[in-house]
Design a binder for these strands. Structure first.
Lengths: 341, 341
DNA sequence: GTGAAAGCGCTAACAC
DNA sequence: GTGTTAGCGCTTTCAC
């Protein structure tokens, strides 16, 4: 009983003996039971039950080269994103789709650069069939790691490094950030607004850059003073709003690169006695309900199907695992009108 | 190239051939190189490097019965606790200690009761050597699952079901909740306070119950109207404080079962124009710095070494895996005086 | 010190 | 339909 795992688990062989059949038959039954007479199926099932047999994972993986597990990689600086409703929704989508494929979600937490080697060994050692990662910053090392160990990987969000090396196209899922931003600005213009400001996200994230570009598409030659950078947090949105009001007290509309920053901006606007949408119209991005519906007034925003994007990441990975090719996927966005604009 | 894993990875055999040694020697080198001549060690290392060899995990596990991975199980209702600084700190401790043991942290997310079967298969299938779980609610099914599949498990927090079945003692790590609560109340009494209220945590969590008991130890025959139940959140602390003030406007001290609820209570106290600590002295529990030091005034609170408890969970699990026995561990608490009491 | 050989528990041809 | 057999890639006695 000094063994690592408690006692000795029953093997296929034991089940076979008890059921009076061969190992192969037991294997067939355990894996679905196709092409086995019902009598034997029942016998085997009974033996499995009685012995409490659970297939040995390592043995199975050794021969099938599949292990039914997919890694979701979280890098330390991003660990906090668990508290971000956006991320939670995406992981939920991933989890559900994985379950539908009968695959296990393994969350890998990278604590820092020192962990890279360990993560590489884990990924390369075949613990998982594939990986899902989030391309949050341009300087991330993850893409290099997954490339090196050759584990099929799908990214959430358009990776920034792709721009540097056009040859290396990795599969990813992202929404139409640029198009969504355009729709937001067009909507504000349609409302007759003339001074439309933008609270952008961090400059090292493609989603922020793409939304900024969409904003500029609609306002060529716009005043750079109408753009302030935030960090996708409520707090930073408030700060950016303050800056903008200082620079351009005449502004009559704001497009924030996400709902959290929009809610921060809204707070500042109200503190200054400005009415939304009468004095300043406000549009967000994401349509995270817990934020967009909770503000007063509720936010007009650009909706993206976050959970759906998570599910899509899994489906693309599965296709990759089946040896099929995979292209990046851009999902559509949709303007949701509420009261803020 | 239609294989699940990309291309064919080099095996031990390939390395052996390239280095001109036997598989056994390569294996020795890969596993530390003890008892192998330096010349051969170098040769092998070189071959490993050149081939980009990574040991096959499944094959190794199949023979060693160990796989260097430990599951941290998160149940869905608790997924939110990622945003709880307490939990994050504990996971950080776990992660660090695991790294020190060269083990991989695998986070298992249980989405709901329907997932139990899958989780059981995963745990029982030998994906991980052991598991770490958090006993948050008394009706949790997890303990039953880990018992069934016989995977060595250490719990964070004293499990509630233990009371029902004294025979089943599982290893767990918890702080001295009762003793800490006593110290808090004693401190308030020492300050000359006469009407000491308690904002308790949810009644289905042992930590909350133990702290309540510690409070009662020091105030036998106390007024039940001085106790209100919260849910360990800031919001619920505020609500409970409101109730207490309504029932007992004369109260002059509050012991909250955690810092988050204390900060909620503090907010309400100030809204009502009550000074802390002059009118009402306030003590929290946990000493989560981001909360206890951030309030105004900063909280006097009962400190527990959260990260240390996470590390301890891992150490106990490792002992379990080595076939040694393991007892529950209660870590000490310490009153930290700041300005609120 | 190093190599040869025997498995770990399972699946997948291939016979029957 | 079912059983037999040959590995999957690695570690680990046991000889030499």
């Amino acid at each position: 009983m000094s063994e690592p795992t408690s006692g000795t688990r029953p093997t296929l062989e034991a089940v076979a003996e008890r059921a009076g059949v061969s190992r192969a038959t037991v294997s067939r039954v355990v894996n679905g039971g196709a092409g086995v007479r019902q009598v034997l199926v029942d016998k085997v099932r009974k033996a499995v039950e009685e012995l409490g047999y659970i297939p040995n994972h390592a043995a199975r993986t050794l021969v099938t080269r599949r292990n039914g597990a997919v890694a979701v990689i979280i890098a330390e600086p991003e660990f906090r994103i668990f508290s971000d409703p956006f991320f939670e929704q995406q992981v939920r989508g991933i989890s559900r789709e994985l379950t539908a494929h009968d695959a296990q979600l393994v969350l890998l937490w990278v604590e820092g650069p020192g962990d890279h080697e360990r993560i590489a060994r884990y990924l390369g050692g075949g613990h998982v069939d594939g990986a899902l990662a989030f391309s949050l910053h341009n300087d991330d090392e993850l893409p290099e790691i997954v490339r090196r160990v050759q584990v099929p990987t799908v990214f959430g969000g358009r990776p920034g490094w792709e721009e540097a090396d056009g040859a290396l196209t990795v599969p990813y899922v992202d929404c139409d950030n640029r198009g969504g931003a355009r729709a937001a600005v067009r909507h504000l213009r349609g409302l007759g607004r003339r001074s439309i400001a933008h609270i952008a996200g961090p400059g090292d994230q493609t989603s922020a850059l793409d939304r900024l570009e969409g904003y500029r598409d609609e306002l060529p030659g716009g005043d750079p003073g109408l753009v302030a950078e935030g960090a996708f947090t409520e707090e930073s949105g408030a700060r950016a709003m303050g800056e903008l009001l200082q620079r351009r007290p005449d502004l009559d509309a704001v497009f924030a690169a996400n709902d959290l920053m929009a809610s921060g901006a809204l707070r500042v606007l109200r503190e200054r006695g400005l009415r939304v949408p009468e004095d300043v119209a406000l549009v967000g991005f994401d349509d995270v309900l817990s934020v967009a519906e909770a503000t007063d007034p509720p936010l007009t925003t650009v909706r993206q199907d976050i959970e759906g994007m998570g599910r899509l990441m899994v489906r693309i990975l599965m296709r990759l695992l089946d040896g099929e090719g995979a292209e990046p996927v851009i999902t559509p966005t949709e303007l949701v009108r509420r009261a803020s604009a």
